[in-house]
């Protein structure tokens, strides 16, 4: 097998992704999800006692709920095939990965299957989020203590 053949095979294995189109799709879908999020924020501010600052929390929960429904009925996969990162980056993507893992492993029982595998895909996000939050906060606290920066 010479170099050219090898490159052909590699080319076949990694089909060229039309990067610009993918980015545009991600932009549109991700933007739409965030716009829906903003509408939900307005809803919570208007009808419940949430301020702009606190409304983000129930909004995250609501979006995860919507993601659960879409995942359960099988629509989320179609959206993510179209949108790529546009549907994975928003919190709905996090919800989707948790919910899909839960449904996927239902047959193994609720404790071992659902409980054990729920964060199979989303776990890395939590782990590295906590890890980096720890180090960032640690470094900043130390810097504040020795007087380099202020809070």
């Amino acid at each position: 097998m010479d170099q050219k053949q090898f490159e052909d095979i590699v080319e076949k294995q990694n089909p060229k992704t039309p990067m610009f189109t993918n980015m545009l799709k991600a932009f549109l879908v991700g933007g739409i999800i965030c716009t829906i999020g903003q509408l939900i924020i307005f809803f919570y501010i208007r009808f419940f006692s949430f301020t702009e600052r606190t409304a983000a929390n129930p909004t995250a929960a609501t979006l995860v709920f919507i993601a659960m429904l879409l995942t359960g009925f099988g629509y989320y996969k179609k959206i993510s095939q179209f949108a790529g990162a546009g549907s994975a980056v928003p919190i709905t993507g996090f919800g989707n990965s948790v919910v899909s893992a839960a449904i996927e492993h239902k047959t193994e029982g609720y404790v071992l299957g659902v409980g054990g595998n729920m964060f199979k895909l989303a776990g890395s996000v939590i782990v590295f989020g906590v890890l980096s939050a720890f180090f960032v906060a640690l470094i900043k606290t130390i810097l504040v203590k020795i007087g380099v920066v202020s809070w």
Partner: peptide, 29 residues
């Protein structure tokens, strides 16, 4: 503004996936 900023963050995610060939888990992390 929510549309544009949210969209742009997703574009960054898409770039990490397509441009730098990261897996979705790496991208999210």
């Amino acid at each position: 503004v929510a549309f544009v900023v949210g969209g742009l963050i997703c574009v960054v995610g898409q770039f990490l996936m397509d441009g730098l060939k990261l897996t979705p888990a790496h991208t999210m992390s």
